[in-house]
Computed example of a mutant assay.
Amino acid sequence: MPPIRRSNLGRRTRRAIISQNVRGNQTQVERAEENEWRRAHIAQVRAAQSSPQIQQNVVRTPAINAGLNRAAFEYNSAIAYKDIRCVDIGSLSVVCQHCNALKFQSETPGLCCAGGKVKLPVLTHPPEPLHSLLYGNTIQSKHFLENTQKYNGCFQMKSFGAQVVDVPGYSPTFKIQGQIHHRAGALLPLPNEDHKFLQIHFVGDSAIELDQRCAIFTATKREMIEQLQNLLHEHNELVRLFKTALDMI
């Protein structure tokens, strides 16, 4: 009887080749750290599976997972999704010893910076008054942080574009088909139309431009909108580029 031939397909997959290359580029210290992490993770999983309560949860897991198929499009407020084990991935409680990045417990050790091999430059502080609004403790700063989405919408340069195929009633989710894109539009509006999105930067009158931005969201403060407007006109490279292009035209 001829011997049974074992398939070598698993060693030829793209994922297996990438894993081999990563392991080959690791130092002995990094490989020892990863092996220790894997041993601790496997021991933790086995210890959890040995608990009777966890075993009962494991038995019900396939049914729960099957019920979560396309659950994002059929959200049910009566279901406590946070209590489902396959949904809750925990908190960012792991700190990388190389780059101090916050990670989830199940993330691999070198996912953030490849064990210290990848080093990004330190981010510079944003110019004023944005820096004080983001990191300050004043009343204006607290107001800005509580309404960042509204202030961001006042300076939105593009609109969201997609082919919507289904919008359920009273639901925060919707289905789209095809590719998501951003609609920039023309730099100037058509005759008898108001300036909107990127076009507001080219009104030509700072006061009128400020009035249009404040009318988008009434919960914003006029003096803060004016400060941010001057900041973008002075420091934002895209706004300066578009203004230069309009002047050339």
Rank of each mutant, 00 (worst) to 15 (best):
A184N: 04
M1P: 06
E226T: 05
E223M: 02
S159C: 10
I42L: 15
Q20D: 12
D211T: 07
C112W: 07
K175M: 13
V165A: 07
V167M: 05
H131R: 02
L111T: 13
R11C: 08
G185M: 06
R70N: 14
F217Q: 05
P109D: 05
C154A: 14
S19H: 13
P52A: 12
V167H: 03
Q212V: 08
Q227F: 00
K243Y: 03
K150Q: 13
S91Y: 01
I17W: 08
Q149G: 09
L232V: 10
L123I: 05
A78I: 07
L9H: 13
E128K: 00
A114I: 08
R6E: 09
E237W: 02
A207R: 04
R15P: 01
P62Y: 08
A71D: 03
S132Q: 01
D83H: 04
Q149M: 11
A184M: 09
N69D: 08
Q156M: 11
E74M: 07
N147D: 02
T220Q: 05
C86L: 01
Q179R: 14
L210I: 04
Y135D: 07
S91A: 03
H181S: 13
N152G: 12
A78P: 00
Y75I: 11
C214S: 05
L120M: 09
V94Y: 05
V22Y: 05
I176R: 12
V29P: 01
H181C: 11
R5V: 05
A66Y: 02
T173K: 02
H181R: 09
R11D: 12
R5F: 06
E223N: 11
F160G: 10
L228M: 10
L187D: 11
N192E: 09
F202T: 03
P129H: 04
